[in-house]
């Protein structure tokens, strides 16, 4: 068999929508016999906490379709015109949008972030927490799930330099 491919990912965003790509690619890459390391930095760090509380904010995503996950098909296909000037300041709007997105994902058979992260751990993906941003945002090693490793830019680049795939998310 060919030599194992390597994939190096950087997860710098912690919102619900941006939490998916690194965990989907990391788990699938590991399933495809790749050695995978994901470097969690800045807002990606909270994705390593036992309970993931990632939310999605429509105000920061102007192109996000605003659709309902229930009701007749015609109703579900309506893209509700929500002015961002309103959604950005309305209390509870992000929580509602997050709930709707999670409901849609579940209905469409998409795994939760936690399930995908469990798969990553099971398949041997190395999850690295950025030491510098841990210090900046006040995270301790005990704040994260078991198995997380810790490192900095040089440690990541040392692996990335030999990797076949490198992506920043």
């Amino acid at each position: 068999m060919a030599e194992r491919k390597k994939m190096a990912l950087i997860a710098a965003q912690g919102s619900l929508d941006w939490a998916y790509p690194p965990f989907i690619l990391a788990s699938t890459g590991a399933a495809m016999d790749m050695d995978v390391k994901v470097f969690f930095t800045f807002y990606g760090l909270p994705l390593l906490k036992p309970k993931i509380k990632a939310k999605v904010t429509p105000a920061a995503n102007p192109a996000m379709p605003m659709k309902m996950p229930f009701g007749p098909k015609g109703f579900q296909n309506i893209d509700w015109p929500m002015p961002h000037a309103i959604t950005g300041v309305m209390p509870g709007f992000d929580t509602m949008a997050t709930g709707l997105m999670k409901k849609t994902f579940k209905k469409k058979g998409v795994a939760t972030i936690t399930e995908l992260r469990d798969m990553c751990v099971m398949l041997g993906v190395e999850l690295i927490a950025c030491q510098m941003t841990m210090d900046v945002f006040g995270f301790e090693k005990e704040d994260f799930i078991d198995g997380v490793t810790f490192g900095g830019a040089a440690a990541f680049l040392d692996f990335a330099a030999e990797a076949d795939i490198q992506m920043f998310m």
Binding site: I24, S27, T28, A31, K108, G109, A111, L116
Partner: peptide
Amino acid sequence: GMNCPLPVL
């Protein structure tokens, strides 16, 4: 009923 990437995993 499973969606990407669950069938592969």
